[in-house]
Design a protein around this nucleic acid. Sequence first.
DNA 1: GTCTATAGTAAGATAGAC
DNA 2: GTCTATCTTACTATAGAC
Lengths: 187, 187
Amino acid sequence: MARPALIEDDELLSKLSQTFRETGYEAASVAALASAAGLQKASLYHRFPGGKEQMARDVLTAAEIWLTENVIAALKADGTPRQRLAGMADALNVFYSGGKLSCLLNVLSTDFGKVGPFTEQLRGLMQSLISAIAATLEDAGLESDEAQAKAEQRVSELQGSLIVSRVLETTAPFEQCLNRMKEVPCG
Amino acid sequence: MARPALIEDDELLSKLSQTFRETGYEAASVAALASAAGLQKASLYHRFPGGKEQMARDVLTAAEIWLTENVIAALKADGTPRQRLAGMADALNVFYSGGKLSCLLNVLSTDFGKVGPFTEQLRGLMQSLISAIAATLEDAGLESDEAQAKAEQRVSELQGSLIVSRVLETTAPFEQCLNRMKEVPCG
DNA sequence: GTCTATAGTAAGATAGAC
DNA sequence: GTCTATCTTACTATAGAC
């Protein structure tokens, strides 16, 4: 194993992720990404030969892993559906820093035309999240179609609450959305 | 009154709006905007001396007027709350082209850091929409706090459903969201 | 692995003819 | 009001020293 880098991969990806989520993909210049990481541009290109697109892809992959190991894992854990939904909400609160960070699903899907380089990965991630929520709602007694629809609705609301929170400059909409997500829908 | 331009202002703004909503603010180059409008870059700058920022601002103002005269007007029209919500949903369906166009509220708030040049206008527009929905829900019998919360929730869901529709490449989430918005919430 | 320095390119914006 | 041509700047990306 080689000597460790001056800045660890995990921390580097975290800094890059924050910049992408704060400013969007196109608006995030490599200079800004380098500055956020505390490196020079050439150092970033050394670690990401694929350039900015690879930086975003690696950030997205890291987010996918984190969401799988935390948000989706919470939904698949032991416990009542109510408890599992609460676990999911807590993990989402961490992921979005209490509503202060945008979602990569939004950011990376916005700055391109019909089809961007991340479309497939984004779709897979979103479907995984929806499926995991739907499965939990089924365990709570909902029928399959109903559970799927409610899961889609909740993911929509989650994404949208981040937009509303950003525009209105208050995290209240995001927090209220998380609270609603903890409850099993009445129908 | 001077001789009319070769391309009318309304149509021009419509083309620019579509480009911004399809690709985002930063990703929409002036060259692409000009191409969409069927003009050269210099012609665009003649009409918008403030450059790309003014183009986006004028597009946003036009959207604000359209939403006020259609979506919000539907909410303030005569009829039962249920009828007014249905009128709003129909207008929103037109505005978003059945879920195929992103929202300027998302696009213009994403590509900047904490504060962008459109923050104030975006916030005002979103608050107007939330207030108009809340007032209709109050007319339907909800208490003030409850109506406000439900209105925020619905706007969140609307924004989010556009993201989910874009990522999953199906307009179903948007359409289902509109259908839910037509109903008066049970509580 | 990180740096300074620099290509090469595309962006936003302007000048001036018609 | 629209155009062609151009300016200036900022961007992505690379080369090569340490």
